[in-house]
């Protein structure tokens, strides 16, 4: 069995923990809990004949991107960057976070999940903004931790990427 360390990176309140919760336990709670430090969860993912055990490091989100604790990134095989689609600023910050992570870790398979897509009324990140993400560096998608939309795909894609398969 292959085990891979995956980090959830994003600023404060983008829904990192909720995505993991949805992915691992198929649950969602409206209640907000801020994560202190890091929370770790495990999810086995089936990829063809192999099982990849994803160890999901849900890293505390902070206000500023400079405050991210890069030591948690050490040894990560892949990163899921999470932005809040209802706060365009958090999407901008994804790029800054990416730069910091690349410096600390090198380039690893990455997903950019623009979350809270269920909140259509306040949605701020249009397709033109999503197109800013270079497809050779990111796998971009919109997700909803509440409805589960895109969640499975985000993790499945990353699992395949970290073991060297790139499903089209």
């Amino acid at each position: 069995m292959i085990q891979k360390k995956i980090c959830m990176v994003g600023v404060f309140g983008t829904g990192k923990t909720s995505l993991v919760r949805q992915f691992v336990h198929s649950k969602f709670s409206e209640k907000y809990h801020s994560t202190v430090g890091v929370k770790i969860d495990r999810k086995p993912v089936q990829l063809g004949g192999t099982t990849v055990n994803l160890l999901l490091w849900d890293i505390e989100g902070r206000d500023g991107t400079q405050e991210i604790q890069t030591s948690y990134l050490r040894g990560a095989s892949g990163i899921i960057y999470v932005a809040d689609g209802t706060r365009v600023r958090t999407f901008d910050q994804v790029f800054e976070l990416r730069a910091i992570a690349d410096k600390a870790l090198g380039i690893v398979p990455s997903v950019c999940a623009v979350n809270k897509v269920d909140l259509v009324d306040t949605w701020q990140v249009g397709d033109e903004r999503l197109a800013e993400l270079d497809p050779t560096l990111w796998h971009a998608l919109t997700t909803s931790a509440k409805t589960g939309e895109g969640v499975e795909e985000a993790f499945q894609w990353l699992a395949g990427a970290v073991i060297g398969e790139r499903p089209e």
Partner: peptide, 19 residues
């Protein structure tokens, strides 16, 4: 059952302490 989680968590705690 959760040795793998314990192992990661422990690493995280140590990372945190170190930082």
């Amino acid at each position: 059952t959760d040795a793998d989680l314990v192992s990661s968590m422990m690493t995280a705690i140590r990372d945190f302490a170190r930082d």
